[in-house]
Amino acid sequence: MNAERNAPQWLIILAFMAVYIVWGTTYLAVIYGLRGFPPFMLSGLRYLLAAILLLGWCGIRRVAWPGWSVVKVCVVSGILMLVGGSGIVAWSEQYITSGQAAIMIATEPFVFLLADRKRWREYFGNVFIITGLLVGFAGIILFFGGGEAAAQQDADNVMQWVGYGAILVGTVFWVAGALHAEGKLDKRTPNILSSAIQLLAAAIASGLLSGMTGEWSRFRIEQVPAAAWAGLLYLVFFGSLIAYMAFTWLITVRPPALVSTHTYVNPVVAVLMGWAFVNEQLSWMQLLGMFVILVGVLLTNFPNYKLSFNRQRA
């Protein structure tokens, strides 16, 4: 409570802007990065540079290195979330727009509900959560139903559907990694250090995957345009550092349920950015599906929001 009272209001506003806007724009940054880097190489370089910076900061601050058990949890969760989750998103954006990718990621809270079995009795005994799941499922059907109308004229329609499916699989990986970290990570481990280990593990795994898929043999650094370098640097500094650190700080000074409202804002930002900068288009049915999905997410999380706000007022 003291931290909440002492946190400067202007700093809280800036942190919310970073979480809301920056995370929404990273989907567009991936599109630019893919103009010069293959997807898993882009992800690997992004994670490696961010890990080096965070580890350097931990070294300067003389943060104690954790035990092997903590490292193992960070390695597993980092690979699941950042390679199986974010890495697959980068791969999928070769075939679908950044806005479509962001909308599909908005279904992630539903995967959390289905995967977190130990809380099923709590989840499925609540009318808001059940209603939210049904509404969100209807939104997904609307979104998929409008996919063909929104497809780019030169896009392979089959690969577009593969991209949709890959992102859904990626959300499962992300949720699995998050739940693994939640259940086994020592809470005393500093967030910056655990994130650095996760990023480093993901960088190594992405590099190996990039080599196995032949990306390194096809890559020509002299052919990378300035826009791709800009996309990579944006992902490193704004996506993997600024937005993440803003998020981890915000949840210490504001209710986590309030901070999690970025789930609703990020897809809207991604759609608008894609439309403004790279002329990405969505059909009216997909836009309607986006709205319905976000309403469903809001309903499923409403009990948590109410509980968090009541605790804050108390």
Rank of each mutant, 00 (worst) to 15 (best):
N6W: 01
W10Q: 10
I12Y: 06
M17T: 06
A18S: 13
V19T: 13
W23M: 11
T25L: 08
L28I: 04
V30P: 10
Y32V: 14
G33E: 09
L34T: 11
R35D: 12
F37A: 08
P38W: 15
S43N: 14
S43F: 04
L45G: 02
L45V: 00
L45K: 05
L45N: 03
L49A: 13
L54Q: 04
G56Y: 07
G56T: 08
C58G: 07
I60T: 09
V63N: 02
P66E: 03
P66A: 04
W68R: 09
K72P: 00
V76I: 05
S77E: 03
G78V: 00
I79S: 08
L80I: 00
L80V: 00
L82N: 03
S86K: 00
V89S: 00
S92N: 03
I105V: 13
E108F: 01
F112R: 01
A115I: 00
D116N: 12
D116M: 04
K118S: 13
R119H: 15
R119D: 15
R121N: 14
E122M: 08
Y123I: 04
Y123S: 09
F124C: 11
F128N: 15
I129F: 05
T131A: 15
G136H: 14
G136L: 12
A138S: 13
F144V: 15
G147F: 00
A149W: 08
Q160Y: 02
V162W: 10
V162C: 06
G163R: 12
Y164R: 07
I167W: 06
I167Y: 08
G170S: 09
A176N: 04
A176V: 01
A181H: 06
L185G: 03
L185H: 06
K187R: 15
P190V: 09
I192K: 08
A196W: 11
L200Q: 06
A201M: 05
A205R: 02
L208T: 00
L208I: 01
L209G: 07
S210Q: 01
M212S: 00
I221L: 14
I221D: 05
E222R: 02
A226H: 04
W229Y: 13
A230V: 15
G231E: 11
V236D: 05
G239D: 09
S240R: 06
Y244P: 02
A246L: 07
F247D: 12
T248I: 11
P255E: 13
L258N: 13
S260N: 13
S260M: 12
H262C: 02
H262W: 09
V265W: 00
N266F: 01
W275T: 10
W275A: 14
E280A: 07
E280K: 03
E280C: 06
Q281V: 14
G289T: 07
V295Y: 05
V297D: 10
V297M: 13
V297K: 12
T300F: 05
P303A: 08
N304C: 08
N304E: 13
Y305H: 15
Y305A: 12
Y305S: 11
K306G: 02
L307I: 07
L307W: 13
Q312K: 04
R313V: 10
R313H: 14
A314M: 07
A314H: 10
